[in-house]
């Protein structure tokens, strides 16, 4: 079965992407030497320093962000029963964006900006969930999504206001760059700060991956099959939001990945979330590692990741659609 070959194939692809990314940069290191440098069997101290302090944190951050956004996207799409949903649907990115740009405006240190983004991202989704549970038709998917759109719009307005107030010479470029996503200047502590939240969010999704499939049937149907649908969906949303908020607070707002990668993975695995999730995590990690490598090597200046994910992703996505490969009904 093609099924069984897929995961090893993606794993090999991810390893190749990691090697390529670690080798590429202003100080090129031949891919063959990377393993030797990492193992400490290569005497080149400069290569070791570049690899350990600059290249590796950035490459691992890219892999983490890619896996996080794609995995969260797959989870959101499944529980909202909609292939067009992205991890931003409940306002996590807009909320995290607002917190982070506010941090930039206030001139906070980088780690505090990340923390603010993380906090406001989680708080935004928490507010959306509380609102949707307290409104009529409490907890229904549609009410939840509409609340997310409304609160997301508010956060968007907040971002615009901060941009208006920001110093156009020093702060505005940083804000704009952050809102388009970037891993420039990522250090080991940044990765270490985001890792626990991403792992904490992904582990329950991985453990519950078959049961999560049933949420794609709708609440009543899942319940009649013996699943506590409302509770399980809240758990999935909480986990996916945690993962997304951690990724966004580290790398800024990177659109499109969470929508596109699960889609493409679904073409290979079918809609079963238990098969989709591992494939999505690996594909998302590899994709983001390659995109980030391109972001820092195609021009003399860093290209924002959000621009590249759209430029590279959209044509591939359209090509797949044009081939008529469908994994959902019209």
């Amino acid at each position: 079965m093609a099924d069984r070959a897929l995961i090893p194939l993606l794993l090999v692809g991810l390893i190749l992407a990691l090697l390529l990314a670690a080798a590429t940069g202003a100080f090129p290191i031949p891919p063959g030497r990377i393993v030797a440098v990492l193992a400490g069997r290569d005497g080149d101290a400069q290569a070791a320093a570049v690899l350990w302090n600059i290249r590796l944190p950035r490459v691992l951050a890219a892999a983490l962000v890619g896996a996080a956004l794609s995995g969260a996207g797959a989870a959101y799409q499944t529980v909202f029963r909609n292939p067009l949903v992205s991890p931003d649907i409940l306002g996590v990115s807009a909320g995290a964006g607002f917190g982070a740009v506010l941090g930039i405006l206030l001139g906070l240190p980088v780690l505090a900006i990340q923390l603010m983004g993380f906090g406001t991202g989680l708080a935004t989704v928490g507010l959306v969930l509380l609102l949707s549970l307290s409104l009529r038709g409490g907890g229904q998917v549609l009410v939840m999504v509409l609340c997310g759109i409304a609160i997301g719009a508010l956060a968007g307005a907040g971002i615009s206001l901060v941009k208006l107030l920001a110093d156009p010479e020093s702060q505005l470029p940083a804000i704009t760059f952050w809102l388009m996503g970037s891993l420039a200047g990522i250090k080991r502590p940044d990765v270490a700060a985001a890792l626990p939240a991403i792992v904490t969010g992904l582990v329950p999704l991985i453990l519950l991956r078959w049961r999560i499939c049933l949420l794609a049937l709708g609440d009543d149907e899942a319940r009649s099959l013996g699943v506590e649908a409302g509770r399980l969906r809240l758990l999935v949303i909480a986990c996916a939001t945690l993962v997304t908020a951690a990724a966004v607070s580290m790398a800024g707002v990177i659109g499109w990945v969470g929508l596109m990668v699960p889609h493409m993975a679904r073409l290979a695995t079918g809609p079963r979330f238990d098969r989709l999730l591992p494939a999505t995590l690996l594909a998302g990690a590899a994709f983001m590692v390659l995109v980030d490598t391109a972001a820092r090597s195609i021009a003399t200046m860093e290209v924002p990741l959000g621009i590249l994910t759209a430029v590279l992703g959209a044509p591939v996505f359209l090509w797949l659609l044009a081939r008529g490969a469908r994994t959902w009904s019209e």
């Binding site: 029963r81 292939p83 049937l217 709708g218 809609p271 994994t327």
Partner: peptide, 11 residues
Amino acid sequence: LSTPFAWAALD
């Protein structure tokens, strides 16, 4: 059926 996804019947 209420699911938008193309499940295999066996699944």
